Amino acid sequence: MPATPATPPAPPPAQGPYAVPDARGGRLRAPVGLATALTVLFALVIASDACTLYADWNLHSLMERMLADSAAVSDAELDRGTRLTGLAGTVHGNAVIVTGIVFIIWFHRVRTNAEAFAPGADKLKTGWAIGAWFIPFANLWLPYRIAVTTWGSSTPSAADGGYRRFPLTLVNLWWGLFVLSKLLGWYGGRAYSSAESAEAVRDAALTMLAGDAFDLVAAVLAVLFVRRLTAMQHARAAQGPAAAAVQGGL
């Protein structure tokens, strides 16, 4: 009696929407957990921004009073104002460093996923999603360029299989305010360090105040950017491997 051919094993079940193979035979990696962590971390950045705003305003107010009447501000008040500015800056700086590390990890992951959705859409290798942040001057543009191409490559198809447009307004606002806040913060910090008069300190505090205000708004927009792009990739991955071929030329 001839042997019955063995039944081929059933393919393993898909492990959620991120089981879509990428161009190298690997798997997409869900950025959802990182996005959740970033939501919490950016909330800390926003809170620290609020503290630096108060410290900047307090320092500016002290200098205004000194300029109006040099005896109106005691040495103790001046010392407290200076220490508050330094402490707020340190806390904010530490929050930004931790958040920045997690953000770059998330940024690299969504860029890698985008390469699976639309291979070759971005001529820069996926490693640039990390390296671009550390190149002087180029880091004012390259991360934005990568964000734009990743955004376009991650756009899910419409219900009828056609192209669905997600405007870049959010990306543009976030990046513009982010760069502006960093430039103002850098300039204000240098001016404060070299200030030798109450008027110079007042002007530096005002510049830092503006930079921190823009930084707070940029942090809010960063949360929206992270959550929107993560949701776009989740929806795109849920459409399966065929969706990656629909917009492969983006």
Rank of each mutant, 00 (worst) to 15 (best):
A3R: 08
A3D: 10
P5D: 13
A6L: 11
Y18H: 05
Y18N: 07
A19H: 04
P21M: 08
G26R: 11
R27V: 14
L28Q: 05
V32W: 05
G33P: 07
G33I: 13
A50W: 11
Y54P: 00
L59C: 04
L62T: 10
L62V: 12
M63F: 06
A68W: 13
D69G: 07
V73W: 03
S74Y: 09
A76G: 01
L78Q: 11
D79P: 03
R80V: 01
G81D: 00
G81L: 02
G86R: 01
G86N: 08
L87N: 07
A88S: 12
T90C: 00
V91A: 06
H92N: 12
W106L: 10
F107A: 08
H108W: 15
R109L: 14
R109N: 10
N113H: 09
A114Q: 07
A116R: 01
A116K: 01
F117Y: 06
A118W: 15
G120A: 09
I130H: 00
G131D: 05
F134G: 12
I135D: 00
I135Q: 00
Y144T: 06
V148M: 04
W151M: 05
S154N: 10
S157Q: 13
Y163N: 13
Y163F: 13
F166A: 04
P167M: 12
P167S: 10
L168W: 02
L173V: 14
L184E: 04
A191L: 05
A191Y: 05
A195F: 00
E199Y: 01
D203N: 12
T207D: 03
M208Q: 06
M208C: 06
G211F: 04
L216K: 03
A222C: 09
A231N: 14
A238I: 15
A238W: 11
A244G: 13
A245D: 08
